[in-house]
């Protein structure tokens, strides 16, 4: 695993396997994933704005998990440029107090047989405000495209707000595209059930929120990174 520090440009050579962790971000990062390469990329984002651009070559696979905490906008753009390119780009965002953030993602299926999947999950408390803009572009002449995008957000307080703006531009026919967004509060029946077992309401809420976000974080293969991200998410939720 390689630690990236304020990197702005990165190329992963053909057929190379690479794992990156990024805790200190520059204001932008461009990644070129060459044909057949396999990349796993873990990012901690928050505080300042950041723009990520990833180009994914033929039969290459790029997997990203981002943990966003606090202020700062995040824009991500994925260009599935080569046939058979595969992109997974999951996000967990946690906001509290007066924090605000816009998370924008653009997935462009610019080649045949490209597959993208994105699961974005957020938890917003205090007077926090998050906006998720999720774009998927599939040009008219592209074939055998599979694009999935799901956004789920939990409002942890009365004054928290989340807004979801899907931007789907699907011009082709040979497409499988599942997308959806749901914004809600914690399930009252689940909270009640946990409390009947003696668990404090505060702890029950935290446990349910963590379980909700862990659907993304549990997918992190590297054990130490997963533990680190889950710990930071817990700290973010306790703020």
């Amino acid at each position: 695993m390689e630690t990236l520090v304020k990197r702005e440009r990165l190329t992963v050579a053909e057929n190379e396997n690479a794992v990156f962790i990024e805790r200190e971000l520059a204001d932008r990062l461009e990644i070129d994933v060459k044909a057949g390469a396999r990349v796993k990329h873990y990012r901690l984002h928050g505080g300042a704005d950041n723009a990520l651009t990833v180009r994914i070559g033929e039969n290459a696979a790029y997997e990203l998990v981002t943990l966003h905490l606090g202020n700062g906008d995040l824009s991500m753009s994925f260009d599935l440029a080569g046939e058979g390119a595969n992109c997974r780009s999951d996000v967990v965002y946690i906001l509290s107090g007066d924090e605000k953030s816009v998370i924008a993602s653009d997935v462009r299926h610019n080649a045949d047989k490209t597959v993208s999947a994105q699961l974005v999950k957020g938890a917003v408390g205090g007077r926090g405000h998050a906006a998720f803009q999720g774009g998927i572009l599939i040009p008219y002449d592209k074939k055998e495209i599979d694009g999935a995008q799901q956004h789920r957000a939990l409002l942890l307080s009365r004054d928290a707000t989340v807004e979801a703006v899907p931007r789907l531009e699907i011009y082709a026919d040979d497409v499988k595209c599942a997308h959806g967004s749901a914004i809600g509060t914690l399930n009252q029946d689940q909270l009640y059930y946990m409390r009947t077992r003696g668990i404090d309401e505060t702890d029950a809420r935290a446990l349910l929120t963590t379980a909700f976000l862990n659907e993304v974080l549990d997918g992190i293969e590297d054990e130490s990174v997963r533990a680190e991200f889950e710990r930071l998410a817990d700290e973010g939720l306790k703020k």
Binding site: N187, D189, Q190, Y192, Y193, M194, R197, G198, I199, D200, D203, L207, L208, T210, A211, F212, N214, E215
Partner: peptide, 20 residues
């Protein structure tokens, strides 16, 4: 009984016992 995705029965019981 209600379903609680993401929380295992073992974890749930640990929380319940420790809360008491």
């Amino acid at each position: 009984p209600v379903e609680i995705p993401g929380v295992s029965m073992a974890t749930f019981m640990k929380y319940a016992l420790n809360a008491r």
